[in-house]
Structure formats: C-alpha cells, structure tokens
Amino acid sequence: MSEMRFTKDHEWIRVDGSVGTVGISDYAQHALGDVVFVDLPEAGRVVAKGGEAAVVESVKAASEVYSPVSGTIVEGNAALVEHPALVNESPEDGAWFFKLTLSDPAEVETLMDRGAYDAYLQTLD
C-alpha cells in the first residue's frame, strides 16, 4: 500500500493497486469536534477529484468530504455509520470513509505527502 497523501481540505488517501482508501485527517477531526453522523456514498457512484463524496456532522455543523481523486466508489465504511465517534478515535486508520477505484492514478501525485501536509498545517491557525 502506498504512503498516505493529503488534500488542502484535510482528506487523506492511501492507494493499493487501483483502489484508494479515503478518510479525513487527525487535524480535521479535531477541528470538527465530536462526530455524530456520517453520510457515505453508495457503491457505483462516480466521483470527481475535489467533488463532494461524503458528509461528516459534528454536534455543531455538517461538513462535506471531498474525494481527493476521481473514480468510482467501491464501498463506504459501514462501521462509521454504526459508530461515528470512530472518526475522532482513529481518523487516519480504522475510520476510513470510502474506497474507490481510481480512474486516473496520476492524480495521486498532485497531492501532498505527510511532510508537505504538516508544513501546510503550520500555515493555518
């Protein structure tokens, strides 16, 4: 499995062959606060790079989760529907949001690696 890549909207993606696994970063879950609901895409849905793919809701507000790359949804993480707080507990591991088959694997190269993302976070706040 490849290293994790990040977007400026705080999604991450890990690619294994032609399938990417997407979630939100630890920074994102901390900024959201307690997650109480997730709305996940259905299998077969086609998503564009930067397009709306899922929704994550805290007590306070709803936020969009954008797909880091283009592709077709394989599955959403059913565990999150049952246990949304998992997003706060293990955002960059067990609490992945969805998997998708990449339509253009080269898009991954346009995303930030961990070092670049950490540097980007330093420019926020």
């Binding site: 307690d34 109480v36 805290s58 007590v59 306070k60």
Partner: peptide, 12 residues
C-alpha cells in the same frame, strides 16, 4: 467560547 477542550458533546 463556543466550547472548551472537553468539547460540545461532553459539556452538554
């Protein structure tokens, strides 16, 4: 203050 470190859910 919209929340403290405990967070909205815990504070509620």
């Amino acid at each position: 203050p919209v929340q403290y470190p405990a967070g909205i859910l815990t504070e509620h």
